[in-house]
């Protein structure tokens, strides 16, 4: 990953800013009498990387939307840095399954979306950090899927967010590009120290990136595994395999076990 080594380092005060902390106190989201997220308790410390895995429809995406403030809890409370969240979460930026770039804006303008003029330098820096500064004048339509997600990552990081929410952003990419993106996210996170919540159905992706993997089923957490392996993690490591297997087993179990506490 030559592009990571060549990255120029800007001396910014935000480098010392730490990630946001999260507290979920019995958060429930109900859609038409159905608890899609069902009384979730969760604490995420600043700078931590939490992955939530589960089958489709288990409520993991809704949980992420709650964290972004796009949805409001029907019950319970959600705190960011100890303060109850109201409306959109200003500390958070989100990456979606699709890149969601504005097709009528060039790459550079997409990365600068929603920023003040004084932040444009940061945006350009973010574009360099994903290695796409040479494409800044291109329209998104001519980029490959992987390049689009890299632009989306740059856009997410341009405002130096303290919380990064990832809603399966790599699931549509080919295997090689996905590995590259995982490396990039992991690298940038270590450099900038933001808190990350990743939602995915890819167990190996969760294990290779996260400090903690949580298994979600029918709106509840059913299993939680800490991953203490050092980065960069290799799939060939035996511990990696053991953890992945344990999580996968839990996902494949037909009857959910009672909720585990922390």
């Amino acid at each position: 990953m030559a592009l990571l080594l060549e990255r120029e380092i800007l001396p910014t005060p935000s480098d010392v800013r730490r990630g946001a902390s999260l507290q979920l106190l019995g958060v429930t989201k109900d859609f038409g009498g159905n608890n899609v997220v069902d009384g979730i308790h969760l604490e995420v410390s600043p700078g931590e990387f939490v992955a939530i895995v589960g089958r489709s429809g288990c409520g993991k995406s809704t949980l992420l939307r709650l964290l972004s403030g796009l949805e409001t809890p029907s019950k319970g409370e959600l705190r960011v840095d100890g303060i109850s969240l109201r409306g959109l979460n200003g500390e958070a930026r989100m990456m979606f399954q699709e890149a969601r770039l504005l097709p009528w804006k060039r790459v550079r303008e997409n990365v600068r979306l929603g920023l003040l003029k004084s932040q444009y330098a940061e945006a350009d820096h973010a574009l360099r950090s994903v290695g796409l500064e040479s494409r800044e004048n291109d329209l998104p339509t001519i980029l490959s899927g992987g390049q689009r997600q890299r632009v989306a990552l740059a856009r997410a990081l341009a405002s130096r967010p303290r919380l990064l929410l990832l809603d399966e952003p790599l699931s549509a990419l080919d295997a090689l590009t996905r590995l590259e993106m995982q490396g990039l996210i992991s690298e940038l996170r270590r450099e900038q120290g933001f808190t990350t919540v990743l939602v995915t159905h890819d167990v190996e992706e969760a294990v290779s990136l996260a400090d903690r993997v949580i298994v979600m089923e029918k709106g509840r957490f059913v299993e939680q595994v800490r991953v203490t392996l050092s980065h960069p993690r290799q799939k060939s490591q035996s511990a990696f395999g053991a953890i992945s297997e344990r999580i996968l087993e839990c996902l494949l179990r037909e009857i959910p076990r009672p909720i585990l506490s922390e």
Binding site: L70, A92, M94, L102, K105, L113, G114, R155, S159
Partner: peptide, 20 residues
């Protein structure tokens, strides 16, 4: 999806209208 993205990225009201 683009409108939702715009909101998450801090656009609202006139800016959301003009840019998205």
């Amino acid at each position: 999806g683009l409108k939702e993205m715009g909101r998450v990225y801090g656009l609202s009201g006139w800016e959301l209208f003009r840019q998205v």
